[in-house]
């Protein structure tokens, strides 16, 4: 029973981690209608930045968020402006896929060039200390990630529904042509949205860096899971992504324990493929999603 509880809590904590990465991805997909195949590499860039800042300035890794979030925000905006925007009207989406795949390939190899193949370990600053809550143990850092993911979901939902710019973002997602006729600067909305999505990853990077060693492939690992999360939650649904992350976290944790840790990816991807095929609109995706694609 205690083992079961521990595996359950591990799963939820892992879910928090997946959620905080997936939210930005689903935001970008829901509004800009582009799947950012370089999303994981955004996380990698953020984590390297957090690592460099933490070690160079000798500060708490969380403090680096002050710099990493704006950095990623700007990086996201530039990506949209110079890589995605010129292709927004491309006749088929292949080209958009190639651009973000190319960006991903370039960033991974750039990291390899700069940092080499070794891991970069950000000082944990006490965040890998375990807390005993009743029969289960969780890391301080994991709890923070979980809390931050929850706050991010609530905050973004409020922002999109209750502010003028938030409504403009939704309007663009629902009908780009009409939004333009309302006087909304559609390209700017896309740029800001991409920036916001990347900024979410920036926050994630600062929170995750002290928990996981950074390498050039860390993005590939996390982003594939983040895609699963986003598809499960219904592309473009922010609360959906959160719930999806929990489900995947649990599957990952339980399959690692009960099936074998080298096959947990197979379990996760099997679920992913089943969902994609049986319910492409996602488990939780319904009318409330931002996008109208599926």
């Amino acid at each position: 029973m205690e083992v079961f509880l521990q595996v359950l809590v591990n799963g939820l904590m892992l879910g928090g981690l997946f959620a905080i990465i997936g939210i930005g991805l689903t935001l970008i997909f829901g509004i800009v209608k582009v799947i950012n195949f370089a999303h994981g590499e955004f996380l990698m860039v953020g984590m390297y930045a957090a690592f460099l800042l933490t070690t160079a300035l000798d500060v708490h890794p969380y403090t680096t968020a002050i710099a990493v979030i704006p950095l990623l925000f700007v990086f996201g905006m530039l990506t949209q402006r110079f890589l995605i925007q010129p292709l927004m009207n491309a006749r088929d989406d292949h080209i958009q896929i190639f651009v973000t795949v190319g960006l991903s390939t370039a960033l991974i190899n750039l990291a390899l060039l700069v940092f080499g193949a070794e891991f970069a370990t950000t000082p944990p600053s006490g965040l890998r200390t375990a807390l005993e809550i009743g029969p289960v143990r969780v890391l301080v850092g994991q709890l923070v990630v979980f809390g931050a993911a929850t706050l991010l979901v609530v905050g973004l939902t409020l922002y999109l529904n209750n502010t003028q710019f938030g409504r403009a973002i939704r309007a663009v997602a629902q009908n780009r042509a009409a939004a333009r006729l309302m006087g909304i600067n559609v390209n700017w909305v896309y740029i800001v949205t991409f920036g916001l999505g990347a900024a979410c990853v920036g926050l994630a990077a600062s929170l995750i860096a002290p928990l996981y060693p950074t390498s050039q492939t860390i993005g590939t690992y996390f982003v594939l899971i983040a895609f699963v999360v986003v598809v499960l939650g219904g592309m473009g649904s922010i609360t959906g992504a959160f719930l999806g992350a929990m489900v995947i976290g649990l599957i990952d944790s339980f399959s690692a324990y009960y099936i074998g840790s080298d096959l947990r990816e197979v379990a996760v991807f099997t679920v992913f493929l089943l969902i994609l095929i049986l319910r492409p609109q996602g488990l939780f995706g319904g009318r409330q999603t931002l996008s109208h694609v599926s």
Partner: peptide, 22 residues
Amino acid sequence: EAIGLHGFVYGVVLVLVALFMP
């Protein structure tokens, strides 16, 4: 000497071709 360089070049070429020579 430059591990990752040719991958980096591939990535950049991919981006440039998609942008300018779809």
